[in-house]
């Protein structure tokens, strides 16, 4: 993570894209608006100093508490958080992007939230986005080949969602 100067350049290149930040965290992060993600990533890959030429990891964190007793005590609203860990090979610097998404598009269970794909910017994202789609249920628009990668193609549900329930049967195999 660069200093505040880096953030100002980002603000000039992509006005209004940064909607939150925490520079005091262990891994300082900036939060980006979902619809501006592709612009920000393209700038980070091609034009920023240093250039973030490598994407290390994409993680989806499901902020949802299935237990109603515990849910009454939590301070956050239920949402999905995508975390992008970027790395600059030349400058040996890292950067963390976060994007907040609704758990379901339009709050209709089963309708996956959508986010622009960055697979055209970093090829690493191809398989990583497929994995996030497979396990956490996020739809990446513009992805060249979005299908399940680790689970079988006819698997139902998204295992890394907090309210996921293991199927009782899968092709005659007992699930529980």
């Amino acid at each position: 993570m660069r200093g505040p100067g880096f953030l100002e350049q980002l603000e000039v290149a992509c006005p209004g894209a940064v909607v939150g930040r925490n520079l005091e965290a262990l891994d300082p992060w900036i939060e980006v608006a979902g619809d501006r993600l592709a612009d920000v990533c393209r700038w980070l890959k091609n034009s920023s100093v240093p250039r973030f030429d490598s994407l290390q990891c994409i993680t989806a964190v499901d902020w949802f508490e299935p237990d109603p007793k515990k849910a009454a005590k939590v301070t956050w609203q239920p949402h999905l958080e995508l975390v992008y860990h970027l790395w600059s090979v030349s400058a040996r610097a890292s950067l963390v992007l976060k994007v907040n998404l609704p758990r379901w598009s339009g709050d209709i269970p089963g309708h996956l939230p959508e986010i622009p794909s960055v697979a055209g910017i970093w090829r690493t994202a191809d398989w990583h986005e497929r994995e996030v789609f497979d396990l956490s249920g996020v739809s990446f628009t513009g992805h060249p080949d979005l299908r399940r990668i680790l689970c079988p193609e006819d698997w139902e549900g998204y295992p890394l969602r907090k309210d996921y329930e293991m199927p009782l049967h899968y092709h005659g195999i007992r699930g529980k």
Partner: peptide
């Protein structure tokens, strides 16, 4: 809070990501 760290394993860079929420059990492990 959360923490991400990559180490140099023999096969390449192995990264772990952990999100803590104040309990002994992590909220998310990657």
């Amino acid at each position: 809070g959360d923490a991400y760290l990559e180490t140099e394993a023999p096969k390449g860079q192995m990264g772990f990501y952990v999100v803590g929420n104040g309990t002994p059990i992590p909220w998310r492990v990657r």
